[in-house]
Simulated scan of single mutants.
Amino acid sequence: MKSKKPLKTNATRILDGLGIEYEILEYEVDEHDLSAENVASKLGLSPSRTVKTIVLKGDRSGVFVCCLGGHREIDMKKLPEITGDGNIETVPSESLLTLTGYVRGGVSPLGMKKSFKILVDKGVLNEERISVSAGKRGLQIWLRPTDLVCATNASVVSFSKEKHQTL
């Protein structure tokens, strides 16, 4: 679904300023399911092509951001080796707006209020194009993963694992 009129967010303005090509994808928001898998389903994409943005806080490194495919989860055994933290926790959703300028389900790694270290999972680079939040629920940015890395000055590392399936 391509947008009829150009929609602008902080994230798209950054991409425009860098001359990075992208498309805006719109989907109907389900307030009860903000998962990357649900967004992927609504857009007709594979969850591996729908990148989720998770904000975390380490006891040594402070706040940082992880971007990974919607079909994966953070491996909390690998992450401390990468960040040097002894303890890492997910930032509570009620703190996201104050910290990043974005709400849960609409957190983009682009255009946050403050500049945080961004980690992009290596597996994201296996995709030709990915969708990532445009900074607003119901809007995704469709772009090359290398452009996301460039625009966010991210470090590409391996920190995810397959999601555990619950029965």
Rank of each mutant, 00 (worst) to 15 (best):
P6V: 13
D16H: 10
Y22N: 05
Y22C: 02
I24N: 02
D30E: 14
E31P: 14
H32C: 03
H32G: 01
A36E: 02
V39W: 06
V39P: 03
L43W: 04
L43Y: 04
L45D: 01
L45M: 14
S46W: 03
S46V: 00
P47A: 11
R49T: 05
T50W: 03
V51D: 07
K52I: 08
L56K: 00
G58I: 10
D59K: 08
D59S: 02
R60C: 06
V65A: 05
C66D: 07
C66I: 06
L68T: 12
L68W: 04
G69E: 13
G70K: 10
H71G: 06
E73F: 01
M76H: 11
K78D: 01
L79V: 07
L79R: 07
P80H: 05
P80R: 02
T83N: 09
G84I: 05
D85C: 09
I88E: 06
V91H: 01
P92C: 08
S93H: 15
T98S: 14
G101Y: 09
G101C: 10
V103C: 03
G105D: 04
G106K: 07
G106S: 08
V107T: 04
K114D: 12
S115P: 00
V120A: 10
V120Q: 03
N126D: 14
R129N: 13
S133K: 02
A134S: 11
K136C: 07
G138L: 09
Q140S: 12
L143H: 04
T146C: 01
L148R: 04
A151T: 03
T152P: 04
T152K: 03
S155E: 15
V156Q: 08
V156E: 08
S160N: 00
S160I: 02
K161H: 06
L167V: 08
